[in-house]
């Protein structure tokens, strides 16, 4: 009994230092260093407080918004707009990308037009959309959808065209019908490049939501920034910037995480380093 006790005691004693040795993920080092340096410089008066407040002031601003219940209102509104625009853009891009990628005829019919539309800088649609859809939500969602559309469309179309002809032949000699070849070969083979397109589209969605909200909104992170500029409160602008970064990163991570089980088979340099990280 005494033996087991000492053994148990030893185990417990051995555990804590091991946990303490667990290192900080590398990605956190740079932002922490910047935060500390920023705070020191702000307190030392190197930065003018009316232009560049320190991290604690920005934190105070976030807390203030949170306490008044406004924080999640603004975030929710912006998320809603990005989400709506993203879904609409992805739906249209998936339809057209699949059609032009799969069939040469539709590609020759539609792709030149779509490429021409792509040449229009997306923000140039703003006046037309406001005229068409009004100044409220519909025009904002439409603008975001346009931003999301092109990267998703392009990566899906080229993804389908790049599928190895040899795999399609395997489907043919194994007696698969047209629909089965699409569903069992083209779809899984295209997923990796489709996901790249989705991530690029999401990033553009976040870019365009700012443009949309700076255009005129009474709510949302873009509005917070505009409001901060008009009322001379840089802490509010920086707080909104940080929230944009957090939401953008979180939604991107969610997308990648959701797709991971579908892409576990990939044999590429990226997955090699990922597996090495997992083994570490």
């Amino acid at each position: 009994m005494s033996v087991s006790l000492t053994l148990a005691g030893r185990k417990e004693a051995a555990a804590p230092p091991r946990r303490a040795r667990r290192r900080l993920p590398k990605g956190w080092i740079a932002p922490l260093v910047i935060l500390v340096a920023w705070e020191i410089l702000a307190r030392a008066g190197v930065f003018k407080p009316n232009l560049m407040p320190g991290p604690t002031d920005v934190g105070g601003e976030l807390l203030y918004l949170f306490e008044r219940g406004r924080l999640f209102d603004h975030m929710g509104m912006t998320l809603w707009r990005v989400g709506g625009g993203f879904l609409a853009g992805v739906a249209a891009a998936t339809l057209f990308g699949a059609l032009t990628g799969y069939s040469r005829t539709t590609r020759e019919l539609l792709d030149p037009t779509i490429q021409a539309l792509k040449a229009v800088p997306s923000l140039a649609w703003v006046p037309l959309f406001i005229l068409w859809f009004g100044i409220f939500e519909a025009s904002k969602v439409a603008l975001i959808a346009v931003g999301v559309f092109f990267p998703v469309y392009l990566s899906l179309m080229s993804g389908i065209q790049d599928v190895d002809r040899k795999l399609v032949e395997v489907g043919e000699v194994l007696g698969l019908g047209r629909f089965e070849i699409v569903w069992r070969i083209l779809v899984p083979a295209t997923l990796p490049s489709y996901l790249v397109g989705l991530r690029a589209g999401l990033a553009l969605g976040w870019m365009f939501v700012i443009a949309a909200e700076l255009m005129g909104a009474s709510k949302g992170l873009g509005f917070l920034m505009f409001d901060g500029q008009m009322t001379g409160r840089p802490a509010q602008i920086i707080a909104a910037l940080i929230l944009f970064a957090v939401l953008g990163k979180l939604t991107d991570a969610a997308l990648t995480l959701a797709a991971r089980p579908l892409l576990a088979w990939q044999d590429s340099f990226g997955t090699m380093t990922e597996r090495a990280d997992a083994a570490r």
Binding site: L167, E169, V170, P188, A189
Partner: peptide, 9 residues
């Protein structure tokens, strides 16, 4: 075929 042509997924 000359290559295995397996579906990698």
């Amino acid at each position: 075929f000359q290559e295995p042509r397996l579906m990698p997924w």
